[in-house]
Protein backbone atom coordinates (compact mmCIF):
# COMPACT_ATOMS: atom_id res chain seq x y z
CA UNK A 1 0.00 0.00 0.00
CA UNK A 2 1.40 3.37 -1.03
CA UNK A 3 1.54 6.33 1.30
CA UNK A 4 -1.60 8.46 1.20
CA UNK A 5 0.37 11.42 -0.16
CA UNK A 6 1.42 9.37 -3.18
CA UNK A 7 -2.00 8.15 -4.27
CA UNK A 8 -3.24 10.05 -7.33
CA UNK A 9 -6.91 9.92 -8.42
CA UNK A 10 -7.61 8.54 -11.91
CA UNK A 11 -9.20 11.03 -14.34
CA UNK A 12 -12.71 9.63 -13.77
CA UNK A 13 -12.35 9.68 -10.02
CA UNK A 14 -10.95 13.18 -10.24
CA UNK A 15 -14.00 14.50 -12.11
CA UNK A 16 -16.25 12.72 -9.63
CA UNK A 17 -14.40 14.23 -6.65
CA UNK A 18 -14.51 17.68 -8.25
CA UNK A 19 -18.28 17.52 -8.78
CA UNK A 20 -19.09 15.97 -5.42
CA UNK A 21 -19.01 19.08 -3.17
CA UNK A 22 -21.14 21.03 -5.65
CA UNK A 23 -23.74 18.28 -5.86
CA UNK A 24 -23.79 17.95 -2.08
CA UNK A 25 -24.26 21.71 -1.64
CA UNK A 26 -27.19 21.78 -4.08
CA UNK A 27 -28.86 18.74 -2.54
CA UNK A 28 -28.47 20.06 1.01
CA UNK A 29 -29.93 23.40 -0.05
CA UNK A 30 -32.81 21.71 -1.80
CA UNK A 31 -33.68 19.55 1.19
CA UNK A 32 -33.52 22.49 3.58
CA UNK A 33 -35.60 24.68 1.31
CA UNK A 34 -38.23 21.93 0.85
CA UNK A 35 -38.47 21.48 4.61
CA UNK A 36 -38.92 25.18 5.34
CA UNK A 37 -41.39 25.79 2.53
CA UNK A 38 -43.57 22.83 3.50
CA UNK A 39 -43.89 24.37 6.97
CA UNK A 40 -44.54 27.90 5.71
CA UNK A 41 -45.11 28.47 1.97
CA UNK A 42 -44.40 32.20 2.40
CA UNK A 43 -40.96 31.65 3.89
CA UNK A 44 -38.42 33.92 2.18
CA UNK A 45 -35.17 32.63 3.57
CA UNK A 46 -34.59 29.58 1.37
CA UNK A 47 -36.59 30.04 -1.86
CA UNK A 48 -37.18 26.99 -4.02
CA UNK A 49 -35.46 26.54 -7.37
CA UNK A 50 -38.64 27.45 -9.20
CA UNK A 51 -38.91 30.71 -7.26
CA UNK A 52 -35.29 31.51 -8.04
CA UNK A 53 -35.82 30.72 -11.72
CA UNK A 54 -38.84 33.04 -11.75
CA UNK A 55 -36.78 35.84 -10.23
CA UNK A 56 -34.01 35.36 -12.77
CA UNK A 57 -36.64 35.44 -15.51
CA UNK A 58 -38.00 38.71 -14.15
CA UNK A 59 -34.62 40.40 -13.84
CA UNK A 60 -32.78 39.08 -16.83
CA UNK A 61 -35.32 38.34 -19.54
CA UNK A 62 -38.21 40.75 -19.00
CA UNK A 63 -37.66 44.39 -19.76
CA UNK A 64 -38.25 46.94 -17.08
CA UNK A 65 -41.60 48.63 -17.69
CA UNK A 66 -40.38 52.10 -16.82
CA UNK A 67 -36.97 52.17 -18.50
CA UNK A 68 -37.29 49.42 -21.09
CA UNK A 69 -33.99 47.91 -19.90
CA UNK A 70 -33.06 44.54 -18.50
CA UNK A 71 -31.97 45.13 -14.91
CA UNK A 72 -29.72 42.12 -14.61
CA UNK A 73 -27.64 42.88 -17.69
CA UNK A 74 -27.58 46.56 -16.89
CA UNK A 75 -26.22 45.77 -13.42
CA UNK A 76 -23.67 43.35 -14.85
CA UNK A 77 -22.42 45.82 -17.43
CA UNK A 78 -22.07 48.60 -14.87
CA UNK A 79 -20.16 46.43 -12.43
CA UNK A 80 -17.93 44.87 -15.05
CA UNK A 81 -17.05 48.27 -16.47
CA UNK A 82 -16.08 49.56 -13.03
CA UNK A 83 -14.03 46.57 -12.02
CA UNK A 84 -12.39 46.27 -15.44
CA UNK A 85 -11.42 49.92 -15.48
CA UNK A 86 -10.23 49.86 -11.88
CA UNK A 87 -8.13 46.74 -12.09
CA UNK A 88 -6.83 47.72 -15.54
CA UNK A 89 -5.56 51.06 -14.30
CA UNK A 90 -4.15 49.40 -11.20
CA UNK A 91 -2.26 46.88 -13.30
CA UNK A 92 -0.74 49.57 -15.54
CA UNK A 93 0.25 51.84 -12.67
CA UNK A 94 1.49 48.89 -10.64
CA UNK A 95 3.61 47.64 -13.51
CA UNK A 96 5.24 50.99 -14.24
CA UNK A 97 5.87 51.98 -10.64
CA UNK A 98 6.95 48.47 -9.67
CA UNK A 99 9.45 48.32 -12.53
CA UNK A 100 10.86 51.76 -11.76
CA UNK A 101 11.21 50.81 -8.10
CA UNK A 102 12.70 47.44 -8.79
CA UNK A 103 15.18 48.59 -11.38
CA UNK A 104 16.33 52.06 -10.31
CA UNK A 105 17.88 52.39 -6.84
CA UNK A 106 17.36 56.15 -6.88
CA UNK A 107 13.61 55.80 -7.43
CA UNK A 108 13.40 52.94 -4.97
CA UNK A 109 15.02 55.03 -2.24
CA UNK A 110 12.44 57.75 -2.76
CA UNK A 111 9.26 55.78 -3.41
CA UNK A 112 9.44 52.34 -1.90
CA UNK A 113 8.90 53.23 1.80
CA UNK A 114 6.12 55.64 0.81
CA UNK A 115 4.30 52.97 -1.16
CA UNK A 116 4.67 50.50 1.68
CA UNK A 117 2.95 52.95 4.03
CA UNK A 118 0.34 53.79 1.39
CA UNK A 119 -0.54 50.14 0.96
CA UNK A 120 -1.24 49.85 4.67
CA UNK A 121 -4.02 52.44 4.67
CA UNK A 122 -7.30 50.50 4.87
CA UNK A 123 -9.09 51.58 1.66
CA UNK A 124 -12.53 51.29 3.22
CA UNK A 125 -11.53 53.84 5.85
CA UNK A 126 -10.95 56.48 3.21
CA UNK A 127 -14.08 55.66 1.21
CA UNK A 128 -15.88 58.69 2.71
CA UNK A 129 -12.99 60.88 1.57
CA UNK A 130 -13.38 59.49 -1.95
CA UNK A 131 -17.10 60.20 -1.95
CA UNK A 132 -16.46 63.72 -0.70
CA UNK A 133 -13.74 64.50 -3.24
CA UNK A 134 -14.93 62.57 -6.28
CA UNK A 135 -18.67 62.76 -5.72
CA UNK A 136 -21.06 59.85 -5.67
CA UNK A 137 -20.69 58.78 -9.29
CA UNK A 138 -18.42 56.40 -11.19
CA UNK A 139 -15.09 58.00 -10.36
CA UNK A 140 -15.25 57.38 -6.61
CA UNK A 141 -16.01 53.68 -7.07
CA UNK A 142 -13.26 53.14 -9.60
CA UNK A 143 -10.87 55.08 -7.38
CA UNK A 144 -11.67 52.82 -4.45
CA UNK A 145 -10.73 49.77 -6.51
CA UNK A 146 -7.53 51.46 -7.66
CA UNK A 147 -6.52 52.59 -4.19
CA UNK A 148 -7.28 49.16 -2.83
CA UNK A 149 -5.34 47.16 -5.39
CA UNK A 150 -2.64 49.34 -7.01
CA UNK A 151 -0.24 49.53 -4.03
CA UNK A 152 -0.35 45.77 -3.63
CA UNK A 153 0.46 45.25 -7.31
CA UNK A 154 3.22 47.87 -7.15
CA UNK A 155 4.87 46.14 -4.22
CA UNK A 156 4.52 42.74 -5.80
CA UNK A 157 6.00 43.93 -9.10
CA UNK A 158 8.89 45.60 -7.31
CA UNK A 159 9.74 42.44 -5.44
CA UNK A 160 9.42 40.37 -8.62
CA UNK A 161 11.85 42.66 -10.45
CA UNK A 162 14.38 42.53 -7.63
CA UNK A 163 14.06 38.75 -7.57
CA UNK A 164 15.16 38.37 -11.18
CA UNK A 165 18.65 36.84 -11.09
CA UNK A 166 21.26 39.62 -10.94
CA UNK A 167 23.30 37.61 -13.41
CA UNK A 168 20.80 38.32 -16.17
CA UNK A 169 20.87 42.06 -15.68
CA UNK A 170 24.66 42.06 -15.66
CA UNK A 171 24.79 39.86 -18.71
CA UNK A 172 22.54 42.30 -20.57
CA UNK A 173 24.88 45.15 -19.67
CA UNK A 174 27.90 43.26 -20.96
CA UNK A 175 25.96 42.85 -24.21
CA UNK A 176 25.69 46.62 -24.46
CA UNK A 177 22.17 47.24 -23.17
CA UNK A 178 21.20 50.61 -21.68
CA UNK A 179 18.94 50.86 -18.63
CA UNK A 180 16.00 51.45 -20.95
CA UNK A 181 16.72 48.38 -23.06
CA UNK A 182 17.24 46.21 -19.98
CA UNK A 183 13.83 47.45 -18.84
CA UNK A 184 11.92 46.73 -22.05
CA UNK A 185 13.73 43.68 -23.39
CA UNK A 186 14.82 41.82 -20.27
CA UNK A 187 12.65 42.90 -17.35
CA UNK A 188 9.28 43.74 -18.95
CA UNK A 189 8.70 40.46 -20.80
CA UNK A 190 9.67 38.47 -17.74
CA UNK A 191 7.51 40.53 -15.43
CA UNK A 192 4.30 40.45 -17.54
CA UNK A 193 3.28 36.90 -16.60
CA UNK A 194 3.95 37.80 -12.98
CA UNK A 195 1.71 40.84 -13.43
CA UNK A 196 -1.10 38.59 -14.64
CA UNK A 197 -0.60 36.37 -11.58
CA UNK A 198 -0.66 39.42 -9.35
CA UNK A 199 -3.88 40.70 -10.95
CA UNK A 200 -5.50 37.31 -10.43
CA UNK A 201 -4.69 37.45 -6.76
CA UNK A 202 -5.98 41.01 -6.31
CA UNK A 203 -9.26 40.36 -8.17
CA UNK A 204 -10.86 39.11 -4.97
CA UNK A 205 -10.07 42.38 -3.22
CA UNK A 206 -11.24 44.34 -6.25
CA UNK A 207 -14.68 42.68 -6.12
CA UNK A 208 -14.88 43.37 -2.41
CA UNK A 209 -14.21 47.08 -2.90
CA UNK A 210 -16.57 47.28 -5.86
CA UNK A 211 -19.50 45.75 -4.03
CA UNK A 212 -18.85 47.82 -0.92
CA UNK A 213 -18.81 51.04 -2.94
CA UNK A 214 -21.91 50.06 -4.90
CA UNK A 215 -23.75 49.15 -1.72
CA UNK A 216 -23.20 52.63 -0.35
CA UNK A 217 -23.79 54.83 -3.38
CA UNK A 218 -24.97 53.74 -6.83
CA UNK A 219 -27.96 53.66 -9.14
CA UNK A 220 -27.07 50.34 -10.73
CA UNK A 221 -24.63 47.50 -10.34
CA UNK A 222 -24.59 43.99 -8.96
CA UNK A 223 -23.65 45.09 -5.44
CA UNK A 224 -26.22 47.88 -5.51
CA UNK A 225 -29.00 45.44 -6.49
CA UNK A 226 -28.18 42.95 -3.77
CA UNK A 227 -28.26 45.60 -1.09
CA UNK A 228 -31.42 47.13 -2.53
CA UNK A 229 -33.51 43.95 -2.54
CA UNK A 230 -32.22 43.03 0.90
CA UNK A 231 -34.89 45.42 2.24
CA UNK A 232 -37.58 43.07 0.88
CA UNK A 233 -35.65 39.97 1.97
CA UNK A 234 -35.64 38.86 -1.66
CA UNK A 235 -33.37 35.87 -1.29
CA UNK A 236 -34.65 34.65 -4.66
CA UNK A 237 -32.81 37.61 -6.25
CA UNK A 238 -29.81 37.76 -3.95
CA UNK A 239 -28.83 34.12 -4.43
CA UNK A 240 -28.64 34.14 -8.24
CA UNK A 241 -26.80 37.47 -8.10
CA UNK A 242 -24.21 36.03 -5.74
CA UNK A 243 -23.81 32.97 -7.94
CA UNK A 244 -23.47 35.22 -10.97
CA UNK A 245 -20.80 37.38 -9.31
CA UNK A 246 -18.91 34.26 -8.33
CA UNK A 247 -19.13 32.97 -11.90
CA UNK A 248 -17.83 36.26 -13.28
CA UNK A 249 -14.94 36.25 -10.83
CA UNK A 250 -14.13 32.69 -11.76
CA UNK A 251 -14.32 33.45 -15.48
CA UNK A 252 -11.91 36.38 -15.08
CA UNK A 253 -9.47 34.33 -13.06
CA UNK A 254 -9.64 31.43 -15.46
CA UNK A 255 -9.18 33.53 -18.58
CA UNK A 256 -6.22 35.40 -17.09
CA UNK A 257 -4.62 32.07 -16.29
CA UNK A 258 -5.22 30.75 -19.81
CA UNK A 259 -3.97 34.01 -21.32
CA UNK A 260 -0.78 33.74 -19.33
CA UNK A 261 -0.22 30.15 -20.39
CA UNK A 262 -0.86 31.06 -24.00
CA UNK A 263 1.41 34.10 -24.10
CA UNK A 264 4.20 33.00 -21.77
CA UNK A 265 4.67 29.24 -22.12
CA UNK A 266 8.28 29.49 -20.90
CA UNK A 267 6.99 30.89 -17.60
CA UNK A 268 4.69 27.98 -16.86
CA UNK A 269 7.22 25.23 -17.45
CA UNK A 270 7.67 22.98 -14.48
CA UNK A 271 4.52 24.17 -12.72
CA UNK A 272 2.56 21.45 -11.00
CA UNK A 273 -0.46 20.52 -13.07
Amino acid sequence: MKRLMNIEPSPVVKVFLTMLPFVIAVVVYWLASEARLSENPNDKLLPSFTQIAAAVERYAFVENKRTGEYLFWQDSAASLWRIGLGIGISACVGLVVGMLNGLLPMVRAGLSPFITILSLIPPMAILPILFITFGLDELAKVMLIIIGTAPVIMRDMQSQVTQLPREQLIKAQTLGASTWLVAIRVVLPQILPRLLASVRLTLGAAWLFLIAAEAIAAQEGLGYRIFLVRRYMSMDVILPYVIWITSLAFAMDFSLKKLSMLCFPWFHQGEAK
Binding site: E167, Q168, I170, K171, A172, Q173, G176, Q190, W266
Partner: peptide, 19 residues
Protein backbone atom coordinates in the same frame (compact mmCIF):
# COMPACT_ATOMS: atom_id res chain seq x y z
CA UNK B 1 33.09 51.22 -13.22
CA UNK B 2 30.13 49.32 -14.59
CA UNK B 3 29.75 46.29 -16.87
CA UNK B 4 30.07 47.08 -20.57
CA UNK B 5 30.66 45.46 -23.94
CA UNK B 6 34.43 45.24 -23.51
CA UNK B 7 34.07 42.47 -20.98
CA UNK B 8 31.93 39.41 -21.64
CA UNK B 9 30.81 37.13 -18.86
CA UNK B 10 29.54 33.59 -18.41
CA UNK B 11 28.33 32.75 -14.92
CA UNK B 12 27.81 29.32 -13.49
CA UNK B 13 24.06 29.74 -13.95
CA UNK B 14 21.38 32.23 -15.00
CA UNK B 15 23.30 33.99 -17.73
CA UNK B 16 20.79 33.38 -20.53
CA UNK B 17 17.36 34.97 -20.88
CA UNK B 18 14.60 32.47 -20.06
CA UNK B 19 11.94 34.27 -22.13
Amino acid sequence: QEPDEERGIVFQRYSVFPH
